[in-house]
Design a binder for these strands. Sequence first.
DNA 1: TCGAATTATGAAAACATTTGCAAAACTATT
DNA 2: AATAGTTTTGCAAATGTTTTCATAATTCGA
Lengths: 343, 343
Amino acid sequence: MSVNKTKKADIVTVAKAARVSASTVSRYFNHPELLKPATRKKIDSAVRRTGYIRNRAAQTIHGIRSGTIGVLIPTLDHAIFAEVVQAFSETVEAQGFTILLASHGYDLQREYAILRKFLEHRVDGVVLTGLDHDEAVFQLLDSQDIPCVLMWNYAAQSRFPAIGADNELAGQMIAAHVLALGHRRIACMFPPTFGNDRALARRDVVLDTLQGAGVEVPDHWMLQTVYSISESKRDAQQLLSQANPPTALICGNDILATGALYGAKASGLSVPEDVSIVGIGDFKGSSDIEPALTTVRLPAKRIGQEAGKELAMAIVDPSARGGASLHCAPELITRQSSAAPAR
Amino acid sequence: MSVNKTKKADIVTVAKAARVSASTVSRYFNHPELLKPATRKKIDSAVRRTGYIRNRAAQTIHGIRSGTIGVLIPTLDHAIFAEVVQAFSETVEAQGFTILLASHGYDLQREYAILRKFLEHRVDGVVLTGLDHDEAVFQLLDSQDIPCVLMWNYAAQSRFPAIGADNELAGQMIAAHVLALGHRRIACMFPPTFGNDRALARRDVVLDTLQGAGVEVPDHWMLQTVYSISESKRDAQQLLSQANPPTALICGNDILATGALYGAKASGLSVPEDVSIVGIGDFKGSSDIEPALTTVRLPAKRIGQEAGKELAMAIVDPSARGGASLHCAPELITRQSSAAPAR
DNA sequence: TCGAATTATGAAAACATTTGCAAAACTATT
DNA sequence: AATAGTTTTGCAAATGTTTTCATAATTCGA
């Protein structure tokens, strides 16, 4: 329908329209202070008339930054990652970057393939989620020299700067909380840990902490439940309706805990009187659910922002490379879903 | 740390290493069937040795597709958009596209600016969220000739192909449901509608439907509540603890409804005996909350997939342009949170 | 074993920019 | 009014590819 100006306007179209050379138009965009005002005005009008839009691809092959950052996450379907990405993207957008986003669904092979694609697009930097990645991914990153940060998880030493929360600490905190309340008959519900170092770290440290206090979790109280409210509701219901149920249930994340809360209710148990239920994460609804969920806050928004700041900085000023890791500390949030066991 | 091979490998580096010409290397990637196996093998090894990664920017300036799609949403913080984006991205990734993602936070000015940036990156196509956009946005899209689809919302006629659910229909369905149960004392809770055509459409049609049945919603039962469980919990609590409260509360989305459910409980009311509460959306947790939420399902995943299919198709085969809109029908999901009013 | 037909490869132009260098156009100074 | 100095602009080369056209290498039939 629209009048197709035969060809898309390029820089020489604009140059002709403004009766200047292409170089001058280029300077108009990149070093406007070098032009005299009259020329600037001419070009301004020519740009408007021709509908010219700069071509970053053409700039990029001159070694100029592409203005893109590759963001690689497991999935957006977990609200918590969506939140991190949102915060990250807002932060780097403010600095003029646009993000390339892709999710690997916990498939390490795909992660590598996606990273390659990002590099083909000549992203200026890359964010990966979590600390554990295929060795090939790290090597690829090493061989290119673009900055990379590992977001979400934190550890003292890591292959690239890590910005996130210490998941082991989070697990330890919640386990310690449950123990401190006096629970000894404790069940756990964790997501499948394959390809998911965060979940794995949390689970192991919870178990260790309990064990350290002399509490063994029997196998049939060690639930593995996929990330889904309905699944966790079902599993919790089944667990809690057995004879002699646990007095506390530690969930690997708040989604599982939310489902467990529903499951407890469906089993006719009250929380926290009959059973304490705790999560990890402090997701959006966790403070408002009834009863409000005791959990460990992982500061998603802050993590996204800090990662964005750090990466943008590393890109803009590559001299200050080797950026530092940053721990966004988890925090125990005690609410109504946990209490001392009835005796 | 890593041994920096002085310069990044480009196609001529590879060519030299393989003792062939640059053209041959180019063909190796784009028309491998033209090379004889021996040459292919030589280049294969040279690519590996040099660590060469193709430069899409350089291809793009030849008019070759960039392999990117710009996705423009209000925010990822609403789980429902995250879900749509995830489905969309999976669908187009399978076709080799990578997405550029940005959010405008309901700011029309920013939407325009982001679109321009997408175009500078020479995206092969664009997805916008919702039907309403600044006229400048539409004009810009018209002037470029890349395909665009409007995702999430549906209307019979729209500026570009629309793939989504009819929000007016959804609003009408939920209002009709509440009326059919016999309610007449009905309150509404909707998000701020500024810059948000979806919310606006829903609200207006709900009101119209109620009015059509002779039900007026008094001003003080017309709540405007930001998208947040805690806010809606508070507002609902306040509403429901007044003397002579409504027997039903229609919420503009499931997040508000979830908060309202908590608010009702906190006010000591039972749902649905004392008050029916319904939402729109059928978000992830809505079926599992206690009581399970009556709502109208907006098929986010399907919308994302269909939009992805349509856009990828329009890009790959531009002859079949002028793609059609597609209605992904909303569906009333009756669960426990709604019932006939007690009398 | 030769020439024709076919297949594989290379040289060079094209793509949309940026940039170093040099020329042109101004200003200021005398 | 001429010169020196400064500011503004244009030319041409460069960037990393793809592609057209031409040439070189191979295959095949006689």
